[in-house]
């Protein structure tokens, strides 16, 4: 039954994503999970941000989040989440998209521009180095620090009689 349930995700995930798509998935998730102020700070430090036109101006809306019964069963609607999205097109035609939790329009706009720049061969390495990698490292450090505090609350049972077998 779990197989049946995970079919949908599997179909989506394994839809033979190209390396480019996987790389894009990765930087988009870095942008969407990073703190707003820090992302904007790094964006502002980028020189020569390109001219762009909005395909869709930043707008806030909702995405219904779904869970699964028992964690692995049938899908159900848990509640919505505020999301802000934005799409831009650079003068060379490159399109950048952003969908991010929260209501910050500036963050969505900066992320869409960065998503577009990251697709440009001439800017990719630079943006990875000045924006994506620092954000990723900072997030990983925060998560690791939290995880170590959490690990310290793990119960170490000491059992007097061990098992029955």
């Amino acid at each position: 039954m779990r197989n049946e349930n995970s079919n949908r995700e599997a179909a989506l995930q394994q839809a033979a994503l190209s390396d480019d798509q996987r790389a894009r998935q990765d930087w988009i998730s870095v942008l969407s999970t990073s703190p707003t102020a820090r992302l904007i700070e790094l964006f502002d430090a980028v020189s020569d941000t390109p001219e762009f036109a909005f395909l869709r101006k930043p707008e806030s809306g909702l995405i219904m989040t779904q869970g699964r019964i028992g964690g692995t069963g049938g899908a159900f609607n848990m509640g919505e989440m505020t999301v802000t999205r934005c799409s831009v097109q650079l003068t060379d035609g490159t399109i950048g998209h952003a969908y991010q939790a929260g209501r910050d329009k500036k963050k969505a706009r900066c992320s869409a521009i960065l998503d577009a720049m990251l697709q440009q061969p001439e800017r990719h390495a630079e943006i990875m180095g000045t924006v994506i990698e620092p954000l990723k490292a900072e997030k990983a450090a925060l998560d690791a620090a939290r995880s170590k505090k959490i690990a310290a609350t793990k119960v170490e049972f000491f059992t007097l009689v061990r098992g029955e077998n």
Binding site: R8, M64, M78, T82
Partner: peptide, 11 residues
């Protein structure tokens, strides 16, 4: 007051 953009994948 907000539009719905869609459904998430099940978390």
């Amino acid at each position: 007051t907000l539009a719905r953009f869609g459904n998430s994948l099940p978390v």
